[in-house]
Design a protein around this nucleic acid. Structure first.
Length: 545
RNA sequence: GGCCCGGUGGUCAAGCGGUUAAGACUCCGCCCUUUCACGGCGGCAUCACGGGUUCGAGUCCCGUCCGGGUCACCA
């Protein structure tokens, strides 16, 4: 006479003890943490997921531990073809490369849940043998009816539990008969919790938390024999020897269940850290960043906008630890991995995603990149996101590097005026004749006649060094009645028509069509004498007609 | 609805019984400056509310309110 467990799991399965031996505890130095990122292969990387992954990554790597990737593909309906590859690619773009799992493989393989089916079944069978789990034959309709009944009876605790759990007390014979009759079943936990009793655990970011014990007979194995998240989590994180389960706060409510599962399976529970979700403000209300409504929820949005991966990570870091920015000021070029990171310093409240702050952080990141490197990054970005820019850059090789080097390479205070690669085209357009739009924005108090006078009297000499070049402008200013410095003008405004700033602004406008640019002398060098002279000439002509 | 988490300026936040309640972003003003950017200085603006406990409360306790999460054969 076969037992219920044998009827439920007729196939030959490894036994739990053998699995324990096959996946032994890791030999890692004291304090080393093992963390993981466990996404579903939807191919879509959410900003929140990146955030979570990054915290896991930092936790492991700041302790000499292991960060692995596990694919949670237990729901075929959500799976997207090529999802895994695209996910790995997205993560890699942020320098987040798992030590194990993914393409790396590892000693605790397989790292894909769909390939671990018999591992889960082995533990499930063991649970049935010990009377800690049972088959449930309730149909979807019956479950809905149960829900409705609880609704009308106004039962505070909804769900499949206690007296509501109809299959819980089915005799083994009846259960066996139904299985043999071909009835579909799911496997449920026979919860032993008491709603009146409370469990206490310490969350690594939130501290001590007290909750009622789990009383729900949660589904462990679905109709198709595939585990639910909860059961897979218990089995996998135990067997893969995860020390710290760091995940989004939506899982916090499941901790009593997870702890109960760990206990009945005989596993030592990992430490848990629930980090708060990234929020978005809308009409004064706070809500979770949504994949549907918010383009910035997708990490791909940031790449498309041209935010360097480093900038996004740097921004996330400011959310991870409020001490980060202070540290960064002291260590402007240190890798982020050198930052003393702890889960405990993470905020327990959900942060609003702040695009303005990201832009500021990004400017700081881009300011540290050399002109040549930046040019290369921009070209790379343009190849994927802005073909017109890419074509332009290819037509003028090296030009962009020269432009971006201005006030940047070797500058003690490099310019911080580019937040995204996507802004670069607008930033540099006047360097290219095909994009240059002649315009003459005049400074306050300067009339077209004044401008005409200035341009008419100005001679550009391409051979002059910067000091000589500016000395000439100063002399010109003086000769036309403009103070040679703003200070002199302020000391006695009545005596002057203005100051050098007005003169150079007119020249700047004629050459670039703009009122704000980096160092004009350097710009002229990049442009070349022919172009400079020609633009100066045209501006003068336009003023006189 | 039950359970759970959270609530300090517009945003991110420090704070662990006694502080003029840090700092950063944004915005505004000033300084520096040939423009802009950078940098410097200054300013606007915060402890959700009500009760306790205490000589003293952002900090501890209780209640309320607000926001979020969860209660799936999704993760």
């Amino acid at each position: 006479m076969p037992t219920l467990a044998e009827v439920l799991f007729p196939q030959s399965l490894p036994n739990p003890a053998a699995l324990e031996a096959q996946y032994p505890p890791r030999s890692l130095p004291e304090g080393a943490r093992v963390t993981r990122f466990a996404p579903s292969p939807t191919g879509f990387l959410h900003l929140g997921s990146l955030y979570t992954a990054y915290v896991n990554f930092l936790t492991a790597h700041s302790t000499g531990g292991v960060f692995f990737l596990r694919i949670e593909d237990t729901d075929k309906k959500r799976e997207v073809a090529g999802g895994v590859a695209s996910l790995l690619e997205s993560l890699a773009a942020f320098g987040i490369v798992p030590d194990e799992g993914g393409v790396a493989g590892g000693a605790y393989a397989p790292y894909t849940q769909s390939a671990r089916r018999e591992i889960y079944q082995a533990f499930a069978k063991d649970l049935v043998e010990r009377g800690l789990a049972y088959p449930c034959f309730c149909t979807e309709d019956e479950l809905t009816a149960l829900r409705d009944a609880q609704e009308t009876a106004d039962v505070p605790q909804k769900g499949y539990w206690g007296q509501w759990a109809r299959c819980r007390d089915l005799s083994a014979q009846d259960a066996i008969a139904r299985v043999q009759a071909g009835d579909a079943w799911v496997l449920r936990l026979r919860a032993d919790g008491d709603a009146e009793k409370r469990i206490v655990f310490t969350d690594e970011v939130r501290g001590k938390i007290e909750m009622p014990e789990n009383i729900l007979d949660t589904v462990l194995l679905k109709r198709d024999g595939v585990p639910t998240y909860h059961f897979a989590h218990a089995v996998d994180d135990h067997l893969m020897r995860t020390t710290h389960v760091i995940r989004s706060e939506e899982w916090l409510a499941s901790v009593p269940l997870h702890l109960a599962l760990m206990r009945v399976c005989g596993f030592r529970a990992p430490k848990y850290a629930h980090i708060s979700a990234l929020m978005k403000s809308e009409d004064g209300a706070k809500r979770k960043l949504s994949k549907r409504k918010d383009p910035e929820a997708a990490v791909s949005w940031f790449s498309a906008q041209g935010y360097p991966a480093d900038a996004v990570l740097e921004y996330l870091m400011t959310l991870i630890s409020s001490a980060f920015e202070d540290w960064r000021r002291v260590h402007p070029t240190e890798p982020r991995s050198a930052f003393p990171f702890t889960l405990k310093k993470m905020s327990a409240s959900g942060a609003l995603f702040d695009a303005v702050k990201l832009a500021d952080v990004s400017k700081g990141v881009i300011a540290l990149v050399s002109g040549a490197d930046l040019a290369q990054q921009v070209r790379h970005w343009a190849g994927a996101h802005d073909t017109a820019l890419a074509a332009l850059l290819d037509k003028h090789p090296d030009r962009l590097a020269q432009i971006l080097a201005i006030d940047r390479d070797g500058a003690k205070k490099p310019r911080k005026d580019i937040a995204r690669y996507g802004e670069v085209l607008g930033y540099v357009s006047y360097f290219f004749d095909e994009l240059f739009v002649p315009a003459l924005p005049l400074p306050e108090g300067i009339s077209p006649a004044d401008a005409s006078e200035i341009l008419g009297a100005y001679d550009y000499d391409a051979d002059e060094d910067k000091d000589a070049w500016f000395a000439r402008i100063r002399a010109l200013a003086l000769s036309l009645g403009y103070a040679a410095s703003p200070k002199e003008y302020k000391d006695n405004p009545a005596q002057w028509r203005g100051h050098v700033g007005a003169v150079s602004s007119v020249i700047r406008a004629a050459i670039t069509g703009r009122s704000n640019t980096p160092d004009l002398w350097a710009i002229c060098r990049v442009l070349g004498a022919t172009t400079v002279l020609s633009r100066l000439q045209k501006a003068l002509v336009s003023l006189n007609t």
